[in-house]
Design a protein around this nucleic acid. Structure first.
Lengths: 234, 234
DNA sequence: ACCTGAACACCGTTCAAGT
DNA sequence: ACCTGAACACCGTTCAAGT
């Protein structure tokens, strides 16, 4: 396991107050801890975060964090919520299709801005007010376009799952490795039984790059919605 | 952390040979270890699996496993590959749409048959021969329908991401909890700013159930493909 | 009140030794 | 050869004590 070998010698201490050696009281807050956790994750990756290391980063005793969060899960929930809240809603304009496209593209870019963080919250549904702002706008666009609330909820959930699936399985870093893995896997295949895979190795590799894939897949889903609207009108 | 409190007292020992106390040599194999890991995961959940516990289950010393797998990652890779290999390919019949539908529905059912296991393999792409059998068939159906190899690869990747997104974020157990979480989150929302969410709480809750959601979302993507084929013909 | 060291019950993995 | 106990460097969290 490679990574940080900087023993908790010095203690980095964010942009916090100038506490002399050991902080006294009220020096910390949930916000400060969340901010430190986000900074740590962006710097070292999500797998390296531990309560002990985070506390050391804050120049505090490990158990101090437990005064602000019940356990590590609660802390991670708060971190993910903070990210959703950070996402600015784009100004939406144009047809329903253009508006939905803008909303989802921005959402996806925001998820990819913190690689790996979405893997923290696979277990429980993501339903913080910050995340639901995006849902609210998605439902509005779809209902205004002519879909019923039930159809809108179903379509938005499909887009949600595609979006989060992309963020989880298509991390924006390490694209070359993923593309190389496709070529290696193809080369190891018994040639007779995989003609289409072997005939489309380059295309499969290209599509491992989220910059190439996400928008095009979204357009496919939007085409499906378009078709349904046309069927409604007819 | 709740879970298994059965100290490594007795050691269960699969359908293995009748080694007396301590096994001598060649008694174990990669296959036996994978089988034991799968059985353990299905029984206790994926979060409870540790090298120490798995070894105890096999009535072996912890380090014995390291004679067969370089580390835990390599073991988990092998477990996920074993599942892909288990998935029987359905006999495909009907139109391209019906065939693709059958293929993907079976694939999704297979993923959901081992809840949580797909979370083990988020990091590296899933490209074992077992998994690529499904890709091969998907590409064949799409190309026979009239799509180019590039279009087929792109469409199949979209379906892949939707499918794995569903398996990761929509686990088939604990549906009632997820639906309850939707209602709780909605109830906590400031009412003025979330009119569409609050007007569609039941619809949003329903769509948290993969049995309701997956097939309908797949149909939406298939509608998108249908629309593109029509545009090609025109 | 607010903070924290020591301790408990775990991890994965290296190493050197057992048979 | 094949297996494994002891040890190392970690975890999250409980508890009882420090100021």
């Amino acid at each position: 396991m490679p990574g940080i070998r900087e023993r908790q010698t010095s203690g980095v201490g964010l942009s916090a107050a100038s506490a002399p050696r050991r902080r006294k009281r009220g020096e910390l807050s949930r916000e400060q801890i969340i901010e430190a956790a986000l900074a740590f994750i962006d710097r070292h990756g999500v797998g390296e975060l531990s309560m002990r290391r985070l506390a050391a980063e804050l120049d505090a005793g490990t158990m101090t964090i437990y005064g602000y969060f019940r356990d590590k899960d609660e802390l991670l929930d708060a971190v993910v919520d903070a990210i959703s809240r950070q996402a600015p809603l784009p100004k939406l304009s144009g047809t329903w299709r253009e508006q939905l496209r803008q909303l989802v593209m921005r959402w996806n870019a925001n998820l990819n801005h913190h690689p790996g963080i979405v893997r923290l919250r696979l277990e429980r549904p993501i339903l913080s007010p910050g995340a639901l702002r995006i849902t609210e706008n998605g439902l509005r666009i779809l209902e205004d376009a002519g879909f019923t609330p039930a159809e809108a909820a179903q379509a938005f959930r499909t887009i949600f799952l595609y979006n989060f699936g992309s963020a989880v399985f298509n991390p924006p870093d390490r694209v070359p490795e993923a593309q190389q893995a496709v070529r290696v896997a193809a080369a190891a295949l018994p040639p007779d039984h995989y003609p289409r895979v072997l005939g489309a190795v380059d295309e499969m590799a290209e599509v491992m790059d989220p910059a190439m894939q996400f928008e095009r897949g979204l357009d496919l889903i939007l085409d499906g919605l378009e078709r349904r609207l046309e069927a409604k009108r007819r």
